[in-house]
Computed example of a mutant assay.
Amino acid sequence: MGESKNQEEMVKEAVEEAKKQAEQNGEIPVEDETAQDEAEETGAPESTDGQEASDDGKEKKGFFKRKNKKDPKDEKIEDLTDKLTRQMAEFDNYRKRTEKEKSAMYEIGAKDIIEKILPVIDNFERGFQSVEDGKKDDPFVDGMDKVYRQLMKTLEDAGVKQIEALGQEFNPDFHNAVMHVEDEEAGENIIVEEFQKGYMYRDSVVRHSMVKVAN
C-alpha cells in the first residue's frame, strides 16, 4: 500500500511538472486547460477564438441574408396588385373611349336626322312667304303655323339652333357665300341677304347659311 501511494504521488508530481513546463513554453494556455479538459470529458471538439469569430460571422451573414430576402407570398401579392392596377387603368381608358365613341355616334346620327328634317322646315317657310296678307288669318294657315312652331321648338330643345347671318360679318365656318355685291351703305364683308338658313347641332354645323356678301 505504501509503495502504491508513493508511485501515484510520483506520477501526479510528474504530470504537474510537465504541465508547468508546458505552460512556461506557451504550449497550453492556463485559461484553456479547463475548456480543454471539459471538451475531452464531454467528447465535444475544442473551439478556438478564430473559429468562434468565423461562426459568429456566418451567423450574422446568414441572419442578414434571411432578413433581406423577400417572402414569396409578398412577391406574389405585389405581382397581383400590379396586374390589378394595370387592368383597372386599362378598363378606365376603355370606358372613356367607349363613351366618347358612343357620344360621337349619337351626334352623327342626330345630325343625319336633323339634316333630313331641314328641307321640311324650308318648305314650311316658303309656304308662309307665298301666303297673301289677307289670308294669314285663315284657320288652315294658322294651323300650319302652329305645326311649324312646334317643330322648331322640338328641334331647339334637342340642341338645334339657327345660325345668325343677316347683318353679321361673313364667317366661312358658318356661312357659304354664293354672291357678292358692291354696297356702299353696307360694311366690309357684311352679309346683306340670306338665301337659305343654316343650322347647328350643339357645337357643330349641320348646314351652312347660303348668303350674299357685300364688298
Score class of each variant (00 low, 15 high):
Arg202Gly: 00
Val211Ala: 05
Glu59Ala: 11
Val206Trp: 04
Asp138Arg: 05
Asp71Ile: 01
Ala22Asn: 04
Lys61Gly: 14
Val192Ile: 10
Ser204Thr: 08
Lys67Ile: 12
Phe124Arg: 04
Lys58Arg: 09
Lys61Gln: 13
Ile121Tyr: 01
Gly134Phe: 10
Asp133Arg: 11
Lys69Ile: 01
Ala14Asp: 13
Lys96Gln: 14
Met10Ser: 11
Lys135Pro: 02
Glu188Asn: 12
Gln162Arg: 14
Gly26Trp: 02
Leu118Met: 09
Ile114Ser: 11
Val178Trp: 07
Gly159Pro: 06
Gly109Lys: 03
Asp37Gln: 10
Thr42Asn: 15
Arg97Trp: 11
Glu188Cys: 06
Arg149Gly: 07
Glu78Ala: 09
Ser130Gln: 05
Glu132Phe: 02
Val213His: 07
Ile114Ala: 13
Glu115His: 09
Ser209Asn: 05
Asp145Arg: 06
Glu182Met: 11
Glu3Ile: 01
Lys65His: 14
Lys67Arg: 15
Tyr106Thr: 12
Asp74Gln: 07
Ala177Cys: 05
Thr98Gly: 00
Ala110Glu: 08
Asp142Pro: 04
Asp71Pro: 03
Ala104Trp: 04
Pro119Cys: 08
Asn176Val: 02
Val30Gln: 14
Glu185Trp: 09
Gly43His: 04
Glu101Phe: 03
Asn189Asp: 15
Glu188Met: 11
Val131Gly: 03
Phe174Arg: 00
Phe124Ala: 00
Gly57Glu: 08
Met144Val: 02
Glu78Gly: 00
Phe174Ser: 03
Lys100Glu: 15
Lys197Val: 06
Phe140Gln: 14
Leu151Trp: 02
Lys67Met: 15
Gln21Val: 05
